[in-house]
């Protein structure tokens, strides 16, 4: 009994300490004034690895998700004789929910895990310690560019996902199933509002991007510097970010679209 209590207490303390360390990491790397001239090449490099290289998976999955939505929506709506509403359904579900959430999940798997593994390996091979030895702050040099790159590229990727998905939906609905393209787009435009739907989607993707990259960077910096520790940290990045994304999504949706 006592042992159980002790285990529980130790675990709780560990978790709380981890949250504290994560906050510390965030404040140190963001508040540490980055020298812009030094920072820019590093940031561009990270934008390339985190953003550009994620582009292919985002575009392909966006296309397929849009096409599936178009097909599923059509088979249901055609029963009610309102298959023109497919455009509206595809656009609303993509812009409000699927684009931010699915992009963030893919982003966690594609970029988040890579960042964790990279930083973890740097720690295990004592590169981070080396930077500190020669007087370069690893927070600035390693952590900050990755945080910013994730934060910047996530909304961009999410927008691209949405637009590709809508294009995929129109491909199926208009070109394949033969819905009149005029009513497809007009229904969509009449029901999607820029400030309500598109901007809220952008806000969601900003929040998700921030959370995912924060978790990834923290897990990398905080891992046990062994090969086993790195593998555990990578797993934790994917699991924690996925859970955080889905939980936060419910919260944000309730705040944005729930009337209360």
């Amino acid at each position: 009994m006592i042992q159980f209590l002790q285990k529980l207490g130790a675990k709780t303390l560990n978790r709380v300490a981890a949250v504290g360390r994560a906050g510390q990491l965030l404040s140190q790397s963001l508040i540490a004034k980055p020298a812009p001239m030094m920072m820019l090449p590093l940031l561009i490099r990270q934008l390339y690895f985190i953003g550009v290289l994620s582009l292919v998976i985002i575009i392909v999955s966006g296309l397929f998700i849009g096409m599936v939505l178009g097909l599923q929506g059509y088979t249901i709506l055609v029963d009610y004789g309102s298959e023109q509403a497919v455009g509206q359904m595809v656009a609303l579900s993509l812009v409000r929910e699927l684009a931010p959430v699915v992009t963030a999940l893919l982003f966690a798997g594609r970029a988040g895990s890579a960042v964790t593994a990279e930083i973890g390996l740097m720690k295990a091979t004592e590169q981070l310690a080396c930077y500190e030895m020669i007087g370069v702050d690893p927070m600035r040099r390693i952590i900050a560019p990755r945080l910013w790159a994730g934060f910047i590229s996530m909304p961009l990727l999410s927008m691209i996902f949405a637009i590709v998905g809508i294009w995929g939906g129109s491909l199926v609905a208009v070109d394949w199933l033969g819905i009149f393209s005029g009513s497809f787009w007009a229904n969509m435009q009449a029901s999607v509002s820029f400030s309500e739907d598109v901007l809220n989607g952008v806000i969601k993707s900003l929040v998700f991007g921030f959370v995912v990259i924060w978790i990834a960077v923290f897990q990398g910096n905080d891992c046990v510097p062994t090969s086993e520790g790195i593998s555990q940290a990578t797993t934790r990045t994917v699991v924690y970010s996925s859970l955080a994304i889905l939980g936060l999504d419910f919260l944000l949706t309730a705040m944005m679209f729930g009337d209360f």
Binding site: A91, V192, F194, V202
Partner: peptide, 12 residues
């Protein structure tokens, strides 16, 4: 993509 969403999809 954002511009396209604004103009083409939401009809802004």
């Amino acid at each position: 993509a954002l511009v396209a969403l604004a103009i083409n999809v939401s009809g802004l």
